[in-house]
Simulated assay, not measured.
Amino acid sequence: MASAGSDEPDDDNEPGKVRVEVVDVEGGGQVLIAVRRDGSPIDPMDLVAKIEGAEPTAYAALAAQWHDLSIGQLRRALTAWLREAGIEDAEHDSRRILETVLKPYQLNAVLDASTPAAWSIPSEVAEMAVRRAAREPLSQIIGSVGFWTLDLIVTRDVLTPRPDTETLVRAALGRITDRSAPLKILDIATGSGAIALALLSELPNAHAVATDISPAALEIAKANAARNQLSGRVRFLETGWADGVEGRFDLLVSNPPYIAPEVIATLEPEVRDFEPLLALDGGQGGLAPYPHLLNEARRLLNPGGHALFEIGHDQGAPVLELARAAGFGSARILADLAGHDRVLAVHN
């Protein structure tokens, strides 16, 4: 039995450390098998290591188990493996992983094929599976996510745009009486650019200014504008909130950080460990950004203009109180599709 991995000390035998070995089989030929470094049988769950420390052989070991499967069999094996790893929507994630690896082919078109997948497919799928089992967000593994009607690049430098935020986009569009008007939009703390770009995609004559304090986030937002052919109608500005922004706007939008610091440690690992703290931490009670945003709305909105801010599901009452204290007596809280408080809406 010859090891395909490098020599390492005998005491490096803790769970999750694996090697791939080449084994001669009766009748000729060789196969790859996965074992722990101490020679004991490998449980697929032992391959789940922190992504920063995961070895290339962990991916290879899993790929070796899947190397002779058809696409349909691979999908079932991947779904079962992710489910055992604790991934809640394993069926969805396995489908997205396979769709990504198989591009440009459609998954449904090859699911019934009985021949084994091409040699590279199990390897790519295994790498993504190990990363997902380590709770890295699927959007970061794939590198993009759908939002509204757009396809947006996602990295660890930005929050992954979520369906909840589409509530804000929908509400903002609902306040526009003429979608062909040359509207001016301000998106504060734009992150990936999701909100500004979604609005521009629906308002053909509008222009936007999008701010963020993070240079890395702004690079992603610029790339997303180019990806969706919207670069000509948006200007990105590196600044805190709306500092230095002048002029008046018809629509002001923001998805600010709104998680209380003491809550962050309780969040799902996909959020807590992989998304930027700067975009999560909303200060005391998660409410720190809102007084400032409301003051900027007062300063920057045109008469009759609208401002909409995303909020946490349990922040409706305190945020409404802040809005009324800032002089927005007609402020409203809007619910998302699940019935949770999600958006603070005010108008000038």
Rank of each mutant, 00 (worst) to 15 (best):
Q73V: 05
A265G: 07
L82R: 00
E246P: 02
A61R: 01
L47H: 10
A288C: 06
L320R: 01
F147M: 03
A34N: 07
V234H: 02
A189W: 00
L197T: 06
H340R: 09
V253R: 05
H92P: 00
L337G: 08
Y290N: 05
I195Q: 05
A54S: 06
P104F: 07
E238K: 14
W81C: 00
I176P: 01
S192N: 06
G16L: 05
D273T: 06
K222S: 13
L218S: 07
V18W: 09
R298G: 01
L111R: 12
R233W: 06
F236P: 00
S330G: 09
R272Q: 10
A129S: 12
S40K: 14
I33A: 03
G304M: 11
T190M: 06
S40P: 14
S123Q: 13
A198V: 07
L159K: 12
G285D: 11
V245P: 02
G146Y: 14
A217C: 04
T167Q: 05
D11T: 10
L277G: 01
D68V: 13
A49S: 14
A90D: 06
Q284R: 13
L183C: 10
G191I: 08
G39M: 12
H306R: 14
F309H: 09
G316M: 08
A80N: 09
G191A: 09
I220C: 13
E321C: 13
G312Y: 06
R248S: 07
Q284L: 14
V343G: 01
A297M: 03
L78A: 01
A61T: 03
E55V: 04
A85K: 01
A198E: 10
H67I: 07
D281F: 02
R95E: 15
